[in-house]
Write a protein that binds this DNA or RNA. Structure first.
Length: 475
RNA sequence: GGGGGUGUAGCUCAGUGGUAGAGCAUCUGCCUUUUAAGCAGGUGGUCGAUGGUUCGAUCCCAUCCACCCUCACCA
């Protein structure tokens, strides 16, 4: 603060308006030898991160978006006035620097500064230079400080951006149209979850923040668009843990005239393409496990997967027997009111944690999949798959149910589940039934969580590490 | 919701039933190739909050708050 007054007294604006750069730290380092040879004069800008003053000269590190570079100022070169100004700078200040490149005695590539100016005065000290900012709470609450001092955090979010760009590019190449549908919905649907409720004053009605956009995208398929997708922010009013944030990102896509096997092939290609585009190879490491997107993904039915991982055979669809087996196995059967839920419980216990390599789990119980089409070979099942990678569920897809009569019945069945106490059961959406009754072509659809995909591809343990501003309680 | 853990200076962390400590940052002085620069000196604290025990609590006890890990719940 005292320095701020001194600067003003010297006629220096601590918060000037703009600065013209012609280079950055990456260009300087990438073309270092040439630039040294030409004695090229570069102008760049960045934040001061460290300072080492030695009498009448000083070394410092500054960093821009691309990383750090050392700078060198010498009183003889920059003159009395700038040397005084340099003394008034702090770690954290943002400066514009002009100079030539050289290598120091200890071999570090350095900008020999001939001119500089203060671009923004920092009024709050940066976290410690050696340990950085390690307190997780502080890092989430003050992500800006986290980003300044922790380069790996910047890298994670840079990758997030690249991953999303690669997905968008791939879907564009495949002929999918990106669309936008309502976030505020009069009726929530398309998933099993509790919603956030909000209120429209003029309409005097409750609205819900969407838990999914599935039912709207299908309306667009009815309307005649054959391949649509949306990058959707969804909201679910549920618990928070390392895999769940109340506000999260999902991509849903729908393709007319396709079934779930087409979608499986499509999604496999998409993931392989994204990983290759972003990393230049098909293999990544997640939590110590090597995961290769190159080979064809494994495919196994949910019932078979349970058996294959040491669980019971539940293919007789006998609810009472399944519940008894579950109880004997120590599974908490509270809330497992239908056969499909018991199957899922067994699956989650036996199979899910083992599914490290990309695996399609196919053919789910019908009673837990109210928007999926009945399996063409077995009426107790639906044509649905989920993708598991690194033990995490990373996507969910169906041959979409397009029979309005069946769909209505499924909603009504869900109503019974709701009456039985399941707050997450689907609600009857009459307008959606109306849309289906106009005729929706055979359609395959897919939803996949962006945050979990980014976790996987950036080897992040918590969803909070891949969301810039995760939800926190007020301090 | 259950279990475990953390909370002390701007940051990273020690520590004690008797007026609060280090390193970095910050301030003053010295130092013209340093890099966790160095040397000398100084400033900086509601010890998460509220109660209780005690002559005296940052420390012991209780309650609460926030965060982390984990289990449960939940696409």
């Amino acid at each position: 603060m005292a320095k701020l007054e001194q600067l003003k007294a010297m006629g220096i604006n601590p918060f000037p308006y703009r600065f013209q750069r012609d280079s950055n730290t990456r260009q300087a380092l990438d073309n270092f030898d040439q630039l040294v040879e030409k004695q090229a004069v570069l102008t760049m800008a960045g934040r001061i991160m460290t300072v080492r003053v030695m009498g009448k000269a000083a070394f410092f590190h500054f960093q821009d978006e691309f990383g750090p570079l050392q700078g060198y100022v010498k009183k003889d070169i920059i003159g009395e006035q700038l040397w005084t100004l340099f003394g008034l700078l702090d770690i954290g200040d943002i400066v514009g620097l002009t100079g030539t490149l050289f290598t120091t005695r200890t071999g570090e590539k350095t900008l020999n500064v001939s001119r500089f100016e203060l671009l923004t005065k920092s009024l709050h000290p940066l976290p410690e230079k050696y340990h950085g900012l390690t307190d997780k709470e502080a890092r989430y609450r003050q992500r800006y400080a986290d980003l300044i001092v922790n380069p790996e955090v910047r890298e994670t979010f840079r990758l997030r951006s690249k991953i999303i760009a690669a997905i968008r590019e791939h879907l564009g190449r495949e002929g999918f149209m990106e669309v936008e549908t309502p976030i505020l919905q009069p009726l929530y649907g398309g998933g099993s979850a509790e919603p956030f409720t909000t209120r429209h004053n003029k309409l005097d009605m409750n609205l819900y923040l969407r838990i999914a956009d599935e039912l709207y995208l299908k309306r667009l398929i009815v309307g005649g668009f054959d391949k649509v997708w949306e990058f959707c922010k969804d909201f679910r009013n549920e618990g928070m843990d390392r895999l769940h944030n109340p506000e999260f990102s999902m991509i849903e896509l729908y393709q007319a005239y396709a079934d779930y096997t087409d979608i499986m092939a499509m999604f496999e290609n998409l993931l392989r393409s994204v990983v290759t585009t972003v990393f230049g190879k098909t293999e990544i490491v997640y939590e110590g496990n090597r995961i290769d997107f190159g080979p064809p993904f494994k495919r196994i039915s949910m019932l078979d997967a349970i058996v294959a991982h040491g669980g019971p055979d539940l293919s007789d669809f006998d609810y009472d027997r399944a519940v008894k087996l579950a109880k004997d196995d120590g599974i908490d059967t509270t809330g497992l009111m239908i056969h499909g839920k018991v199957v899922e419980a067994f699956f989650e216990k036996y199979a899910e944690p083992q599914l490290i390599s990309p695996t399609f789990i196919i053919d789910f119980p019908r009673d837990v999949s109210p928007l999926a089409k009945v399996h063409r070979a077995n009426p107790k099942l639906v044509e649905r798959f989920e993708v598991f990678i690194g033990g995490m569920e990373c996507g969910n897809a169906f041959s979409e149910l397009n029979d309005p009569i069946d769909q209505k019945q499924r909603f009504l069945d869900q109503g019974k589940v709701a009456e039985a106490g399941d707050v997450e059961a689907h609600r009857l959406d009459e307008d959606f039934i109306m849309a289906l009754s106009y005729g929706m072509p055979p359609t395959g659809g897919l939803g996949f969580g962006i945050d979990r995909l980014v976790m996987l591809l950036t080897d992040s343990h918590s969803i909070r590490d891949v969301i810039f501003f995760p939800q926190m309680r007020p301090e």
